[in-house]
Design a protein around this nucleic acid. Sequence first.
DNA 1: TGGGCTTAGTCTGCGCGCAAACCACCACAA
DNA 2: TTGTGGTGGTTTGCGCGCAGACTAAGCCCA
Lengths: 218, 218
Amino acid sequence: MAETRLPQADAYTLILAAIDEGIYKPGDRLVESELAERFGVSRTPIREALQRLETQSLLSRDGRSLIVASLDHNQLAELYVVRAELEGLAARLAARHATVEEVRVLRDMVAADRRMVDDPAALSRANKRFHKQIHLGSHNRFLVQQLDLVHRSMALLATTSLAAEGRGGEALDEHAAIVEAIARGDGDEAAEALKAHISHAFETRLKLESGDRRRVGH
Amino acid sequence: MAETRLPQADAYTLILAAIDEGIYKPGDRLVESELAERFGVSRTPIREALQRLETQSLLSRDGRSLIVASLDHNQLAELYVVRAELEGLAARLAARHATVEEVRVLRDMVAADRRMVDDPAALSRANKRFHKQIHLGSHNRFLVQQLDLVHRSMALLATTSLAAEGRGGEALDEHAAIVEAIARGDGDEAAEALKAHISHAFETRLKLESGDRRRVGH
DNA sequence: TGGGCTTAGTCTGCGCGCAAACCACCACAA
DNA sequence: TTGTGGTGGTTTGCGCGCAGACTAAGCCCA
């Protein structure tokens, strides 16, 4: 009874949310019976949810059992390369296909987000919304789907690069530049701006990571 | 007993193969109990397989039941845009990261495939292998995974553009150009050549489709 | 004391059956 | 003839339990 989060969410959504919120961290073992009890359903829907998550590479197999997938340094780099390309494509397409209303929403988002520069958690959520809006602006369902996958994999990363000192402000300036390129209908510029934005985010993450590693003594 | 195709393949693989072979066509309804009987397992593993296929958008829901997804004209165009971008990226990365052995394999493939120009079915299989080899040459696991998804969606299309008169020869010339660009380590050229290749394939498919449509009187 | 065998416990894979939702068909009435 | 309500059959969602595999711990023997 205490676990009735949303009116009715299926096991898949529940487990995804749990990973997203960091309740289960990369490397954690997911035991069917445990999840079943936690969410108050039987093992069957849990099994189905786990398999779906496995096909999206959010879970991987360790022997017979499933664990939350973790990204090593190489995989992180590979992920960012693909992400930059796809986000760049989304920006290019958005410049061509976004409606004036969609562009207006993007502009409003950038303006609203400026008021959150000091709240990394809120900024991170706003950031997700912003990028999602660009994806939708591309009016390409496959691209949206592929980018969803990419962002879901990124949920495996505990920290957000927006937590870095000063990165929030920078990121917002970059967002503004992207939106203006899209508003102008300049696809090349929009794609380049978004690729550069992703590249900076990756760079920031790498710096954060090496910092963390030093602090915790890995 | 008659259905024991491979020693042990799970339901997921079996259903995927059945869609691939055209046993189930876009729009066909997939009934759990039917599949269970056909493959000689109970409904449980079938259900799991169906859900996995649904998360990959190979199946879609029609009311409560699952049908094989079909691609309308818009979706086809959207798919090809994403495909061109990802394949282009793969070529670019392959130019940078492929080993000499991998390049040699690509060259051999092009040479071997020239002997099949008159067999569209064999050519189609060889084509899949060729592109897969380029994906692997990128040495980017995420990219390989994303491209797998794209190609799986393309399995929903009944015809191969290689069936068009003369397309086989053209495609092989384009393959050769791509391989040479990769061999030279010229990423930009490789990406452009592969994008152009995909673009031609799409064009051919569109011509084929309009022809088909005229013939069957849609 | 150490190595191998046995045994108990855990967890996944899968079959099975019930209940609820949905669809189609039909009958009856306006 | 058309609209409305009921009813049966089909199909999915899910709980449950068994069997097999794998793990780990303990015991016996060298």
